[in-house]
């Protein structure tokens, strides 16, 4: 016994044997489900979008600063890496946007039945795909 808290892990069965108490299963033993995966994706996209604001701040500050600074940020956004970031950003933003609306409905106590949670989850995934593709089609047509 290395830790006094270990004492809490030892117990007796009804026939008197001492046994180690079983631990409740950790997160990784569960089969991924649409509910759990979409929940963690909401966090991951939120954190990713936070990093994405660096580009937004860079753009705004450069627009204030000078033509040269603006040319640099415009070059970066137009580069292959920039396009890749913008694409990732658009997916993350639409996902967080749609799933966030799902959360707002839950906050009003709506759609909390499991069948509805599954259905709205699928709807969010479809909407994310459609809106992302739609955004880039509109972008391509605007050029």
């Amino acid at each position: 016994m290395t830790d006094t808290r270990e004492a809490l892990m030892v117990a007796r069965t009804s026939d008197g044997r001492t046994v180690r108490r079983p631990l409740s299963p950790h997160l990784q033993v569960y089969r991924p489900q649409i509910t759990s995966v979409m929940s963690i994706l909401h966090r991951i996209t939120g954190v990713a979008l936070s990093f994405g604001t660096l580009l937004l701040v860079w753009f705004l500050v450069a627009a204030v600063e000078s033509d040269a600074a603006y040319a640099r940020v415009a070059w970066f956004i137009g580069s292959p890496v920039g396009y890749l970031l913008m694409f990732g950003w658009s997916v993350a933003l639409w996902y967080h946007f749609c799933n966030g609306i799902r959360h707002i409905f839950w906050d009003f106590g709506m759609g909390l039945e499991l069948v509805h949670v599954h259905a709205s989850g699928k709807a969010v995934l479809v909407a994310t795909a459609v809106l992302t593709v739609g955004t880039w089609i509109v972008f391509a047509m605007a050029q």
Binding site: A71, L93, F97, G100, T135, V138, F139, A142
Partner: peptide
């Protein structure tokens, strides 16, 4: 979150409009 629903829609629309614009146009 509520405030960001319309603001983000407007932002995406604006970002598409602004793409490829010169600094003067942005200002």
């Amino acid at each position: 979150a509520f405030a960001l629903v319309p603001l983000v829609l407007w932002f995406i629309y604006s970002a598409i409009r602004l793409s490829g614009m010169k600094r003067g146009d942005v200002i």
